[in-house]
C-alpha cells in the first residue's frame, strides 16, 4: 500500500515527528511504500542541518536524512512555511538574498501542490501534528 505522511510540528517540542518517524519506519519494514513525507507548519523545522541536540538524545533531523537515504524517501518541506521560518536550500537562500542555507541532506523544498498530489496519488494520507 502507498502511504504519504504530513508532519505539522517541529522536532523536540512535540512528539509528532517522533511518532511519524516510528510509523514510517514500521510501514517500510512491513513492505509498504512511502510516496512522500510532507513537512508543513513548524514541521519544516525538521529539515535544518544546523540542529545540534545533545549526544545522549536522538538526532531527529539526521534520523530522517538516514531513513530517506536508505529508502529513497521524498522528504518535502513546504516552501511558504519554510520561508517564514528561515529554512532554505541554496536556491531559496539566493532568491531571498540570504547569505546561507541550512537544509539537511535528503530534504527538498517545494510547493503545497506536493501535499495535494500526495493526497491524490497515495492510498493513505496520515497527519501527525499537535
Amino acid at each position: 500500500m502507498k502511504f504519504s505522511v504530513m508532519i505539522s510540528e517541529g522536532p523536540y517540542t512535540h512528539q509528532a515527528s517522533d511518532t511519524a518517524y516510528n510509523f514510517t519506519k514500521a510501514a517500510l519494514e512491513d513492505g509498504h511504500e512511502c510516496f512522500r513525507i510532507f513537512f508543513y507548519h513548524d514541521g519544516v523545522n525538521n529539515g535544518t542541518r544546523l540542529a545540534s541536540p545533545p549526544q545522549d538524545d536522538r538526532n531527529i533531523v539526521n534520523r530522517w536524512s538516514a531513513l530517506a537515504k536508505e529508502h529513497k524517501l521524498d522528504l518535502v518541506l513546504c516552501v511558504a512555511a519554510a520561508q517564514r521560518r528561515g529554512i532554505a536550500d541554496a536556491d531559496e537562500a539566493k532568491r531571498n538574498g540570504k547569505n546561507a542555507d541550512n537544509i539537511a541532506p535528503g530534504f527538498r523544498i517545494s510547493g503545497l501542490g506536493q501535499l495535494i498530489e500526495a493526497g491524490i496519488q497515495s492510498d493513505r494520507l496520515i497527519t501527525f501534528g499537535d
Binding site: Y40, H41, L112, L115, I116, I120
Partner: peptide, 19 residues
C-alpha cells in the same frame, strides 16, 4: 496559532487540482 491561516493556504493551492 498559525494553523487556520496555513490551512487556508492549502485550500487555495488545492483548488487548482480540480478535486
Amino acid at each position: 496559532t498559525i494553523y487556520a491561516l496555513e490551512a487556508l493556504e492549502v485550500v487555495l493551492i488545492g483548488a487548482a487540482f480540480e478535486q
